[in-house]
Computed example of a mutant assay.
Amino acid sequence: MLAVVLALALGTYAFRLAGVLLADRLTLPESVRRLLPLAAVALLTALAVTAALTEAGSPAGVARPGGVLVGLILAWRRLPFAVVVVAAAATAAGLRLLGLP
């Protein structure tokens, strides 16, 4: 297990170092450079949705997505981060106390 973690850490470091070392040598087309920030947003959104809606490969139930929805609405309304996190957690906890999965 430790070998896997070390291999992943080394691979991540090498990948990032390659980006720094090759930045001046690699020229991307303008269309690709325009789309790169959108790709990062799409990846992060996919990770967030997967984490919010699934648990161990199966649907997460109602409580977690409910808490995430409350957090999204409060963040969209630009409430302070601490308020968003506490309200989302309280919503999920409240739904679980009511017996919802």
Rank of each mutant, 00 (worst) to 15 (best):
L28N: 08
V62F: 10
A23H: 05
R77S: 08
L100T: 01
L47R: 08
R33W: 00
V4K: 14
A89P: 01
R25H: 14
A82N: 06
R64V: 14
A46N: 06
T91I: 03
V83F: 11
A60Y: 02
L8Q: 13
G57C: 07
P37V: 09
L6C: 06
D24I: 05
V86L: 14
A88Y: 04
L38G: 14
R33N: 11
G67D: 02
A3N: 06
L10F: 13
I73P: 00
W76Y: 13
A23G: 00
R78I: 00
G66E: 07
L35E: 11
V62R: 00
R16H: 09
V32C: 06
L10D: 04
F81I: 12
L74F: 05
G67Q: 04
A48W: 06
A40P: 00
R64K: 14
L26W: 09
G66K: 03
L98K: 02
L43G: 14
R77A: 14
T50H: 15
A82R: 08
G61N: 01
L100Q: 09
G61Y: 00
W76I: 07
G57K: 02
L26S: 01
L44M: 15
A7C: 07
L2K: 11
L72V: 06
G66A: 11
A60N: 03
L8F: 14
T45F: 07
G67N: 03
V68F: 15
A82D: 09
L53A: 10
V83T: 13
G99C: 10
A40D: 09
P29H: 15
L38K: 04
F81K: 08
A23V: 03
L79S: 01
A63Q: 01
V83Q: 08
G94F: 01
A39D: 10
L43H: 10
A52W: 01
L21K: 12
A56R: 10
A75H: 03
V86K: 00
G19V: 07
L74G: 05
L79T: 06
I73A: 15
A42N: 07
V86N: 01
W76N: 02
P80M: 04
L79M: 11
A39E: 11
V84L: 04
R96E: 05
G71T: 01
V49Q: 02
T50L: 11
A7K: 12
T12C: 13
L79Q: 09
A92T: 00
P37I: 07
A14Q: 12
A23K: 04
G11P: 06
G67I: 01
A90V: 13
E55T: 05
R64F: 08
G66H: 04
L26A: 06
L69S: 11
A48V: 10
R77W: 12
V32D: 05
L6N: 09
R64N: 03
S58N: 04
V84A: 03
L8K: 11
P59I: 03
R96C: 01
L72A: 12
V5G: 05
T54R: 09
A87T: 05
V4R: 15
L17P: 07
F81C: 02
A93W: 03
R96H: 07
A87Q: 02
G66P: 05
A46V: 13
P29F: 06
R16L: 13
P80S: 05
T12K: 03
V5H: 10
P65G: 00
A90L: 15
R64E: 03
A87R: 01
G99S: 08
A3M: 03
A60I: 08
A56L: 06
G94A: 04
L53R: 00
R25A: 15
